[in-house]
Structures are given as C-alpha cells and as structure tokens.
Design a protein around this nucleic acid. Structure first.
Length: 410
RNA sequence: GCCUGGGUGGGGUAGCUGGUUAUCCUAUGGGACUGUGGAUCCUACGACUCGGGUUCGAAUCCCGACCCGGGCCCCA
C-alpha cells in the first residue's frame, strides 16, 4: 500500500519551489532593506504559550502532543506569540525598538480549503518597543511594499480598537469580546440581538453602530463626535497622516476587530481577489503580549502575510536560468565530468549519469529545457575544444571550455 | 464539526440506464534510426480509493470510511 501525505499538507516540486523561493526572496529583500533582522523560533512550543491569550477554545485547532517528558507541546499555530516569548526570555534589556522578520511554517488543525492548509507558511514582521504611530505606519507600509514586490495588489483596511473599545468601557470584558467578534464578522443582526440581551444603553448602541459603519475621509471627524476627544483618536489621526506620507491608499474601517483579544490599538487587514472565501492575505496590528508572558509591559506592532495565499495570486515569475547539459560518448565520459566540474563554478550543469547514448542525451537535454548543450566528442577534444549548441536556435560552434561562459552570458 | 460536488494507470480521459480480456491520449523505461533534440515505429510498465452490501455477475446500484475541490463554523 502506498503512503499518502497527511491531510492538509503538500509536497512542493522543483518548478513550484523555484517560484516559492523567488517570491520568498523578494519578501526577504524588502524586509532587509527596511532594516529588519531575520529570526527563527522553534517549530514547537509549550502549549500554554498559545492557550494563555486565547483560552482553551483554540485547542481544537492546535496540533499538540505530550512528549516523553510528559510536557504538553504544540506545533506553533502562528509566530507572534513565539517571537514575543523569545523577546521576554532574552531580549528585554536590548536596545529598542527591535525589528524582526520571519518566514516559517505553522500548523493548524482545520478543514482544508482554498488557501487554507494544515501546514502553511507565514511571512511576518514585528516591531517591539514602540507605541508610536511612526512604528505602526512603518509596519503597514512595509506590508504593502512586500506584497507589491510579489506582484500582489490588495485593499488595505485600517482601524483602531482603542476607539471602538472606548465605547464599551462600561460593560463586562467578556461582553466586549463577544461584541468585537460580532463586529469583526459584520454580523449586524447578531450584534443587535446581543446588545438587546445585555440591555446595552441606547446611547452606546447608537454610537457603536455609527462608529463601526464609519468609512473614508470624514471618519475621524465623526468618530471624535461619537467618542469624544480621546487619546486613541489623536493617535489614529497621526497614523493616518503618516500613511499619507508613505503615499498609501487605504480605507478607514472601524469594523475591523481581528477577533482577538490581545490587539489593543491599530489593526489592519489586506484583502485580495481570487482567493475564494479566504481573501485576506495579510493582517496585523498593535498589541501587548509581553506582559502576559511574564515580561514588562512592552508595546509591539506586527503582521503576518499568508505566504501560500500570495503564491495563489502573485504574478511574479522567476527569470529563466541558463542550464547546460554536457553530452559525451563512451570514450569521453571522464572528460565530460572534468568539463562539468569547471562549468559548475558558473552555471547549472548537468552531465549524464544514466549511461545513455549520444542521441538520448541530447533528447534528454531537450526535455530538461537546457538552454545549451556542450558536446564533448573525441573529434572536438582532440582539437582542444568542445561544440557549444544553442538549443533555441540550433546553432552550434566550436569553442574552448573557457569560452563557454562568456558565450552563454554574452 | 457541518453542508455540497467529486475520486478509473504518473497526468488527462472513455465506460458508469450492471454482462467477454476496462478505451484512448500523454508521460515514463528499454529498443530501432548506430555523432545531433521535440518526429516515427516496436516493446515494456501501469488504474477502477478502501471496506461492506445487493446480484448469477459491480468501475457501474446502495451504505460507510478515507482523500480531493468549494462553502459554513473558525480564522491567533
């Protein structure tokens, strides 16, 4: 019986890996140019790291197991918590702000569908140690820049949880969470019913509905009327001004809640066409997790890009690489290896390892998509040369091994 | 966990109102053409997702499981 890969996992073949690596490298280059350093955290962590902020409810979506030392271990379902854990564990006294990026696989036990897998890849960044709008704006601009570098255009929505939450100060935290979740789902009917259920004051109810409906340029003016002149509004306005400085197109959207309790300030999401039900390619915001993990209270901002979703829709294609196949005969096989060793210093080179005959070697070069074939026959070698054949044009010329590289890359 | 559509050689397919040895294309291995690629020919390889049921007989009908696509819940 043949084995099958576990549900929701994938194998990546060379063609696809070439494309994935290409996009990955584009994202990396952007992160590095913006001054972010790469980090890597373990594939698995203690399960509490993920349950502490989100409760036991998420257990159903976590891959977890007990190790031989009887520890409850979880394959990471995301990377923000591990990064902050790493920060609290060893970097609290390092100069701020810290700017990190990461690219790694994560695991969630969910029903697979388009753009959703049980093993998936996230590319993300975090700024740790600044609560300023400058940090938030930079993070958003970086997210957009990364997606652009991958050839992806999306709709950027920006909101601020502090503003919405200020309306809910009077009610219980669990009720706040529930409301935020309904807001996030844009479930107006459910929200209305829930507000009835908890006997929310009419004033709050009216303001809440008006606030989460706010969009566009006058949003801040109206928001100020609704919630008063609070700090969060000034902060958010400062952020929007900076987004203008970056030249970003965005939509103010007070209806973003991210469904998560740990976000405290700015939140943003980027949506794309062509992804079916999972149309969000990027999401993030400002949060305070360090405290929760036993460290000092430290403001952070970050986001994660759904790398697999980017791969679904991105236009960018890697440039074709030159590939050479050396074709030899039984009496020149050893010389072919020597030539291959020289060419491999400069270019992807294939030499026959299957004992194939001359014609089949050329045929195979063709199926490989070789740009050139180097024919190492006795006649050529006796003259100190080889034949270089361009597989596109079919043109063939006698050259020395040293001349091959410059001929190919001319 | 729920709803919905679907699973025939490696890929793509025909058959699927039950009935000889499951069709065709392609890919792959070997060979012919004996120092020049995409061609042609010969040959080999290779499939009814699995289990149960109905039946004289099941790829075909029924049930279940598994897997895949899409949607819901969820989405840190």
């Amino acid at each position: 019986m043949e084995f099958q890969r576990p549900r929701g996992t994938r194998d990546f073949l060379p063609d696809e890996m070439a494309k994935r690596r290409y996009i990955e490298n584009r994202l990396r280059e952007v992160a590095i140019r913006w001054g972010y350093g790469e980090i890597k955290t373990p594939t698995f962590e203690h399960i509490e790291l993920f349950t502490i902020k989100s409760g036991e409810g998420i257990l159903g979506e976590i891959y977890n197991f007990k190790d031989k030392g009887d520890r409850e271990i979880a394959l990471r379902p995301e990377l923000t918590a591990p990064v902050i854990r790493m920060y609290v564990e060893g970097l609290q006294k390092s100069p701020k702000p810290l700017k990190f990026y990461y690219f790694d696989n994560c695991f969630r036990y969910e029903r697979p569908q388009k753009g959703r897998f049980r093993e998936f890849f996230q590319f993300g960044v975090e700024i740790i140690g600044s609560a300023r709008p400058e940090a938030e704006a930079e993070v958003i601009a970086l997210a957009v820049e990364m997606l652009n570098s991958a050839g992806v255009k999306g709709d950027l929505h920006v909101g601020h949880l502090g503003i919405v939450r200020s309306l809910l100060k009077e009610i219980q935290p669990y009720q706040q969470s529930k409301i935020m979740r309904l807001v996030d789902k844009k479930d107006d009917k459910g929200l209305d019913e829930f507000l009835d259920e908890i006997n929310a004051p009419d004033e709050m109810r009216g303001k809440l509905f008006r606030l989460i409906g706010l969009r566009g340029i006058n949003a801040m003016h109206e928001a100020r009327e609704l919630v008063g002149d609070i700090e969060a509004i000034s902060q958010f306005e400062a952020l929007l001004e900076l987004l203008d400085v970056y030249g970003l197109e965005y939509q103010v959207d007070m209806g973003i809640a991210r469904g998560l309790d740990y976000y405290t300030g700015m939140v943003f999401e980027i949506y794309c066409e062509g992804l079916g039900a999972q149309n969000q390619v990027c999401g993030g915001g400002s949060y305070r997790l360090a405290q929760l993990f036993g460290g000092e209270d430290t403001p952070s901002t970050g986001y994660a890009i759904g790398f697999d979703r980017v791969m679904e829709i991105c236009e960018a294609k890697p440039a074709e690489v030159k590939r050479i196949v050396i074709v030899s005969f039984d009496d020149t096989r050893e010389q072919a290896i020597v030539i291959a060793q020289k060419l491999r210093q400069h270019v992807s080179t294939y030499v026959d390892v299957a004992g194939r005959k001359f014609k089949d070697q050329i045929s195979y070069a063709n199926t490989l998509g070789a740009s050139h074939v180097v024919i190492a026959g006795k006649n050529e070698l006796d003259a100190g040369k080889v034949a270089l054949k361009d597989m596109k044009t079919g043109v063939q010329e006698l050259v020395t091994v040293e001349e091959i590289i410059e001929k190919i890359f001319r």
